[in-house]
Amino acid sequence: MTASAAVPVLRVVDLSLRYLTRGGEVKAVQDVNFELAQGEALGLVGESGCGKTSVANCLMRLLPDNAQLVAGQVFLDGQDILPLSEDQIREYRWQRIAMVFQAAMNALDPVYKVGQQVVEAIEAHGVEPTLSLARERVAGLFRMVGLDPALMDRYPHEFSGGMRQRAVIAMALACDPRVIIADEPTTALDVIVQDRILRELKGIQQRLHMAIIYISHDIAVVAEVTDRIGVMYAGRLVEYGPTAAVFRAPLHPYTAALMGSFPSIAGEKRVLANLSGEPPNLIDPPSGCPFHPRCLHATDVCRQEIPPRVERGDQWADCWHPLEAAPALEPADNGGT
């Protein structure tokens, strides 16, 4: 655990979440801890079904009916939001913590004009006293994300994928939130648009000094725009640390494998180290280290006992056999050149 100099805007303590399903209890999130200071960018990475989106939904308190919070606290500006009533949480949503949705395509209601959907959020929180001021604010937001304010009166189906993504970002910024969660913000876009939007989002975040959480399965995308990175596997945070340090020398074999699954343009030509298999079934997770069935370094102790925490500076991982400082795999180039 690292203590930031500034007071954290967001602090997640021992968060555990289950889904009650017909097949049994899905342990979607287990003992997740992290904190986020003002202006900081955190990346949460992992394969699908590792609990990233569940963590995000906990932070917004947008959980399906079958979700059950087992333990933990989520402090937003020092206030634990998990025990709040539905009316109280509504005040927090969008004003303190907002979200850029996974599928921007579907996050906009097809029957309303895009500008109107942003105005709606502003009106719900009484951020601007009149409609015309609210519309002016939306025009400003549109300009900020690189959209022509005239597009406010267009419908979502008239937007391209990139434009929609920008509109969804503008929507997230509508009430000056302290924290923004970007859940796979650019996955549906082509690489060039993806890169441009990510850089712009990063610029806006730094300018407005907001905290942001990027959620992605693509560790390379997250690496470019974050200060810290958390790697999730089977509902647990398995590695956490400054992005540069994690990239230079991952401690957990899973992190190394994730990095190895993406090609590097600058590096030598090599066979991609594929992760074989799939993330475990969280109804009945593997004993010991949850990653052991897929890990190349797994031994008997990994199968039987929960791994200890290994620290190296600000970086930590839960692993029996942490990797040495010089990893076997070339890290993906993160734009440092």
Partner: peptide, 17 residues
Amino acid sequence: REDYVMAARAKGLPEKL
């Protein structure tokens, strides 16, 4: 089940809206 309904809730709109 659509995302825009979840988005509306995330925006902090009252349930009725």
